[in-house]
Measured scan of single mutants.
Amino acid sequence: GAPPLPPYSAGGREVTMKKGDILTLLNSTNKDWWKVEVNDRQGFVPAAYVKKLDSGTGKELVLALYDYQEK
């Protein structure tokens, strides 16, 4: 199953993602919540729920390892 959710501390809205989604990583300075862009929406997802990909394009991409439903 998915890892436990860290307390929400990102101070911005969250976004929903599905397992297998490829998201653009915008900011990973917060260790628990990373800012991503998905379907032209920006928001935060739990860092433990995604994995960085080596895209080779200069853009940082992450793979959704679990479904996440915004609150």
Score class of each variant (00 low, 15 high):
G1Y: 06
A2R: 07
A2F: 10
P3K: 05
P3R: 05
P4A: 10
L5W: 06
L5Q: 06
L5V: 09
P6W: 02
P6H: 02
P7F: 05
P7S: 10
P7A: 11
Y8H: 08
Y8C: 13
Y8D: 09
Y8P: 08
S9V: 09
A10W: 07
A10N: 08
G11R: 08
G12H: 08
R13H: 13
E14W: 06
E14T: 15
E14I: 10
V15T: 07
M17Q: 01
M17V: 09
K18G: 04
K18M: 09
K19G: 04
K19M: 08
K19C: 06
D21P: 00
D21C: 05
D21M: 15
D21W: 09
D21F: 04
I22T: 05
L23A: 08
L23C: 08
T24L: 15
L25N: 01
L26K: 04
L26V: 12
N27A: 06
N27F: 05
S28W: 08
S28D: 15
T29I: 08
T29E: 15
N30D: 11
N30K: 04
N30Q: 11
K31T: 08
K31N: 12
K31Y: 06
K31H: 11
D32R: 05
D32V: 07
W33T: 00
W33Y: 04
W33C: 04
W34I: 04
K35G: 05
V36F: 02
V36D: 00
V38H: 15
N39P: 05
N39T: 08
N39K: 13
N39Y: 13
D40L: 07
D40I: 05
R41T: 13
R41D: 11
R41L: 13
Q42E: 13
Q42L: 07
G43C: 04
G43V: 06
G43Q: 02
F44A: 02
V45L: 02
V45D: 01
V45G: 00
V45R: 00
V45M: 01
V45N: 00
P46Y: 03
P46L: 03
P46C: 03
A47C: 05
A47Y: 02
A48E: 11
A48Q: 09
A48I: 11
Y49L: 07
Y49V: 04
K51N: 06
K52D: 04
L53G: 03
L53S: 03
L53W: 06
D54Q: 11
D54G: 14
D54W: 11
S55F: 11
S55L: 12
S55W: 15
S55E: 10
G56I: 14
G56V: 13
G56P: 15
T57L: 12
T57W: 11
T57M: 12
G58E: 11
G58L: 11
G58D: 14
E60N: 15
E60D: 13
E60Q: 15
L61K: 09
L61H: 07
V62Q: 00
L63T: 06
L63D: 01
L63F: 07
A64T: 03
A64C: 09
L65T: 03
L65A: 03
L65Y: 03
L65F: 03
Y66I: 04
Y66G: 02
D67W: 03
Y68M: 03
Y68L: 03
Y68N: 01
Q69K: 14
E70G: 15
K71H: 14
K71N: 14
K71S: 14
K71R: 15
